[in-house]
């Protein structure tokens, strides 16, 4: 009997796979998933170009780092030029206050960092140092983007698109009755559809995460450890598993799954501010616990809201993984019960 169910499930997965991967309705999911890849690719290109430029300038006009550090506010333009030589990049003059104040910016580089000295009427007033980006900085930025954009928004909305489409999309297309008329248990149908959605979501989002990780380490000699890489890919897959089950159930229980989706979005977004006990009733809490780097909330967060952020100990790896699987199993059991009683009224839907 199990072998029969298994064969039926594989048949459903086979049928659903093309619809899930190649549906026109789901093309925006690819855009959402691969937008961060474009972002990291752009960053790599810009970084490599800047690095080459700075090294070429430093080779043509060598300026020792010690001399750059010796420059102090209050020095005159001539003193700075005497110590560092003629500026090599992007020097410009601007006049303020109807031309009364003459501002000038002189740029130097030691091959790694860029120093911009700002003069007002020939006197040094500001020193801006733009240091070369480091792998440690980019690793932290990746962790923040992964947790606050990729998990909370890209995978979330991607799963809304993929999993609500499995049942609700067929209702809209008036094609679900073909499945319901086939001699197949509703639970098997649900499991097959969920498996197809999960395979598609995991393939799309883990591929995107893997590309992002590759692009992250591309401009550097060092790279993330195998443990970190597998942790990020695993978290992306678990996010698809958790959110997928929720939105599959939403597609079955609600005529308009947008309402539960908006509710879940608000709940997951408010997770930062929830008390410890409530934090644990969310998917994002377990996913964040599994992330290898702790990303702090956005630095530009409203100070009043920042006061409301509550810190909670992350869940242990075993508990987090088991928790996500348990939540998924419970949601799927409820969804399969609903699927058993599912009746179609295309007119009403």
């Amino acid at each position: 009997m199990i072998a029969k169910y298994w064969a039926q499930m594989r048949a459903v997965v086979r049928l659903e796979m093309k619809k899930t991967f190649l549906s026109r309705r789901g093309l925006w999911v690819y855009l959402l998933a691969f937008a961060p890849v474009l972002m990291f690719a752009g960053h790599d290109l810009s970084m490599m170009r800047t690095r080459e430029e700075r090294r070429a300038i430093a080779a043509a006009h060598p300026v020792p780092a010690g001399a750059l550090l010796s420059i102090q506010p209050g020095m005159t333009r001539e003193e700075v030029i005497a110590r560092l030589g003629e500026p090599n990049v992007d020097s410009r003059q601007i006049r303020f206050g109807g031309g009364r104040i003459r501002r000038e910016f002189l740029s130097y580089t030691d091959g790694q960092s860029r120093y911009v000295f700002g003069f007002a009427d020939g006197e040094l007033q500001s020193i801006s140092v733009r240091e070369e980006e480091t792998f440690a900085q980019d690793r932290l930025i990746f962790a923040t983007v992964f947790q606050f954009f990729f998990l909370r928004l890209a995978i979330f909305f991607g799963c809304v698109g993929i999993f609500t489409n499995l049942f609700r999309g067929e209702l809209i297309d008036k094609s679900l009755h073909y499945y319901l008329l086939a001699p197949i248990r509703r639970e098997v149908l649900l499991a097959g559809k969920y498996a197809a959605g999960l395979i598609a979501a995991v393939a799309i989002f883990t591929a995107s995460a893997a590309l992002q990780l590759w692009l992250l380490s591309l401009p550097y000699e060092s790279s993330l450890s195998g443990h970190e890489i597998s942790a990020y890919l695993g978290v992306a897959a678990l996010a698809c598993l958790g959110y997928g089950s929720v939105f599959l159930a939403a597609g079955l229980f609600f005529r308009n799954p947008l309402l539960p989706a908006a509710g879940v979005l608000i709940w997951e977004s408010a997770n930062l501010f929830l008390p410890s006990a409530l934090k644990k009733i969310s998917v994002i809490y377990y996913l964040q616990s599994l992330c290898p780097v702790v990303a702090s909330p956005h630095r530009e967060i409203n100070p009043v809201l920042a006061l409301l952020i509550s810190s909670t100990e992350p869940a242990s790896t075993i508990l987090a993984v088991a928790g996500l699987f348990a939540v998924t199993a419970v949601v799927l059991v409820f969804a399969s019960r609903r699927a058993r009683r599912l009746e179609i009224n295309y007119g009403a839907d």
Binding site: G42, E133, V145
Partner: peptide
């Protein structure tokens, strides 16, 4: 609105 905001902030962080 949500993804635009998130993507904009991510872009700021990654591209400085």
């Amino acid at each position: 609105i949500f993804v635009g905001a998130g993507f904009g902030r991510a872009l700021n962080a990654v591209m400085r």
